[in-house]
């Protein structure tokens, strides 16, 4: 039996979670929300994490009903993510490990998403669509690694949606993507269909970096309303994601698909993916905002698996890295 405490702070969410044998005991989270039209900057995000982390640790321990003594291992996000926020959390974990005398496991953020998705949904060997603010990857386990079969070659889908929301000055509360989803729920009918030039390739998808200027122009001329644009952008991007995922499933003969990452809690994306899966005789596994969005429990879960198969990180190695590929980690806990 392992009780693991996980710390996540790679982007604008600070999450701390405690997991005991696959059971989530506590998983509080604090999100740094910026005003409409603004993204989150590393320095301010780090400041947010530093300001709330002590309070959040207390909250997590209290909710879980665990004492510090009962915790077996501390797990933290090594990367990928923003340097300053990652660093802030790592320093706290390093200090706690020495104060409480606990071992530490450094976790890859992407792998934590996958492992948490598998834990919550019961998926066994799925094709994974990992779609968030910083990452858009199609992943499957093969020969000891989580291999990246496809990814966007310029920006991530979540980043694309975030930038778009910024142009439209949509609220960042709770997240830009959520408000794009809500905005296009208001509209009854698409009057016209803006043509987003996006190429969908078999294994890579490509977003051209035109969103800012072109959107601004459309709005200025009144050619399209914000509702039209939200709807069209979302439909187009999600259709590409589902199509590319389907190709990966068809190529690997997979009957399971798992969506993880912040964009993964979008209900329209889940609906489209589930239709595709149904037509292929496959099953869709998806989670809600508790686990799709960055959280501490996912770090604890991946950390537990790593801890059990002997991955420990010495204090001198408890560093962070902004770039940390999903396929760099030896996944020796899958037999």
């Amino acid at each position: 039996m392992v009780i693991a405490m996980g710390f996540e702070g790679s982007a604008n969410k600070l999450g701390i979670g405690i997991i005991k044998d696959g059971q989530v005991l506590a998983n509080p989270r604090s999100t740094y929300i910026t005003p409409p039209g603004h993204g989150f900057l590393p320095r301010d995000t780090a400041k947010h994490h530093q300001n709330v982390i002590h309070e959040l640790i207390d909250k997590c321990l209290k909710e879980s009903g665990c004492t510090v003594d009962e915790i077996d291992v501390l797990c933290y996000t090594k990367g990928p993510g923003m340097g300053a926020p990652l660093q802030s959390v790592a320093i706290v974990v390093r200090t706690l490990a020495q104060l409480w005398n606990k071992p530490v496991v450094a976790v890859n953020h992407c792998i934590a998403h996958i492992e948490m998705g598998k834990l919550v949904t019961g998926a066994r060997n799925p094709i994974v669509l990992y779609v968030s603010g910083g990452n858009t990857q199609i992943i499957a386990y093969s020969a000891g690694r989580y291999r990246i079969f496809g990814e966007t070659i310029d920006i991530a889908v979540g980043n694309c949606l975030d930038r778009f929301a910024r142009v439209l000055k949509l609220s960042n509360d709770p997240s830009p993507g959520y408000n794009i989803e809500q905005t296009n729920k208001w509209q009854k009918r698409v009057k016209s269909w803006p043509h987003f030039h996006m190429l969908s390739k078999e294994w890579t998808f490509h977003f051209q970096d035109f969103i800012e200027d072109r959107t601004a122009n459309w709005l200025k001329t009144g050619e399209y309303t914000p509702e039209d644009l939200c709807f069209s952008l979302q439909e187009t991007i999600f259709a590409m994601l589902v199509e590319t995922t389907e190709r990966a499933m068809s190529n690997t003969n997979s009957k399971e698909v798992l969506i993880v990452g912040g964009v993964g809690c979008n209900e329209r994306l889940q609906m489209m993916m589930s239709k595709m899966a149904e037509e292929r005789g496959a099953i869709l596994y998806a989670t809600d905002e508790r686990y799709c969005i960055d959280n501490g429990a996912m770090i604890a879960q991946a950390g537990t698996l790593m801890f059990q198969s002997g991955h420990l990180t010495s204090i001198s190695q408890t560093t962070v890295t902004q770039r940390f590929r999903t396929d760099e980690v030896d996944v020796d806990w899958i037999k």
Binding site: A11, G39, P80, G134, D154, N159, Q322
Partner: peptide, 9 residues
């Protein structure tokens, strides 16, 4: 590109 890209929003 994939390897060097910053993975942040």
């Amino acid at each position: 590109r994939g390897r060097k890209r910053d993975m942040v929003g």
